Amino acid sequence: MRTPQDVLAPLTDSALFLTLTVRPGHEATVHDFLPDLDGLVRSVAFPHPREDLTCVLGISSDAWDRLLSGPRPAHLHPFREIAGDRHTAPATAGDLFLHLRSTRPYPCFELGRRVVAALGPAVEVVDAVHGFRYFDRRDLLGFVDGTANPTGDDAARSALVGDDDPEFAGGSYLAVQKYLHDLAAWTAKPVQDREASVGRQMLENIEIPDDEKAPDSHVALTTITDPDGTERDIVRDNMPFGSIGRAEYGTFFAGYAADPSVTERMLTRMFVGEPAGTTDRLLEVSTAVTGGLFFVPPAELLDDPPPLPEPGPAAAAGAGPDAGAGSLGIGGLRAGPA
């Protein structure tokens, strides 16, 4: 297996989630930047070893076709909008995604600033979210987030591509969403209702037993089990974020998976229901406002990327296998139960 990026880095107290689009005609600048990213990370991280600064770079389906020639990751495709009767997980713009993590905010800020400065007019920043670790790893809804994450070898199996796609073994599929919470509506609910919505006790952080758990609770709907009884996991690194001035409070979801269909089934169960209509109770107070899918290539590919695609009619038009899905390769799908 090739060397993974820092997908499995430990949870930190600060993060920056940075979404960029590549301006047409500037693909060569971005391509040439890829091998320089590691040096930028080192320049910020080396003088501050206790900050545990890491950086993960993901590339969207459309951007992959514009930036890199040769084979594609087997399951890379645009994020597909999931539209249920009551809730929608939208697909939004994004060609490159950077997940920066550190102990304190300033290394993430400085690295993000240097990345954007190095790319200059080649990219546009479409979203920048500064995440922070809240009280004893709780989200703004008051629940500990990430308790059920796999660890050790299980985390690697869940998050990293294996021998089924040997060219990209060590890579990972990263799905991201930004959720905004109606905290007034949430805190108006009795604690018992909040626990039923999540499927976990609020104070003790103990999962509610299956025979007592509501079928439309978040935990029930995001637990994916194969027909043979095997539970399928992803590695989440969600972070709270907020702005008091804008009265904007939310959770940034970042989920790493060896196979994006696992994450997509979780989202379909949340937004459409399984059976249809049994949607996630959390969506009554939480609204997804962004959505993207990116492939996090092995470190070797960033250090020595394949050449730019040969120019031609399709390349000039920014077209690839996902042509017709939108100018940024973002498609729409009215999803039914997976």
Rank of each mutant, 00 (worst) to 15 (best):
G320Y: 03
L16H: 08
P90G: 11
R236T: 03
A288R: 12
L183V: 07
K213N: 06
D211G: 09
L293Q: 14
T279Y: 13
G329F: 09
V22M: 04
S327W: 10
G170L: 04
P107S: 05
R104Y: 04
A257W: 06
D38C: 07
L40H: 11
V129D: 09
A74K: 15
W64V: 01
V285R: 06
D303L: 14
H48W: 08
D233Q: 15
E310F: 00
T222H: 07
A220S: 15
L141C: 06
D38K: 12
L67A: 02
F46A: 01
A338F: 15
A214G: 12
L53P: 07
P306Y: 09
V41E: 05
V272D: 02
R194C: 03
G326K: 05
R72A: 03
V56S: 01
H218T: 03
P78A: 12
P313L: 15
H26M: 15
V191R: 14
D228E: 10
R200M: 14
L293P: 11
R137T: 01
P4D: 02
R2D: 03
T54N: 06
E167R: 13
I59P: 03
T268P: 02
A15H: 01
T103K: 03
L96C: 06
A89Y: 08
E204H: 08
P337W: 11
G70F: 12
D304L: 07
R104E: 06
C55D: 01
C108P: 00
P298L: 03
V125W: 04
T268F: 02
I82S: 08
S327E: 13
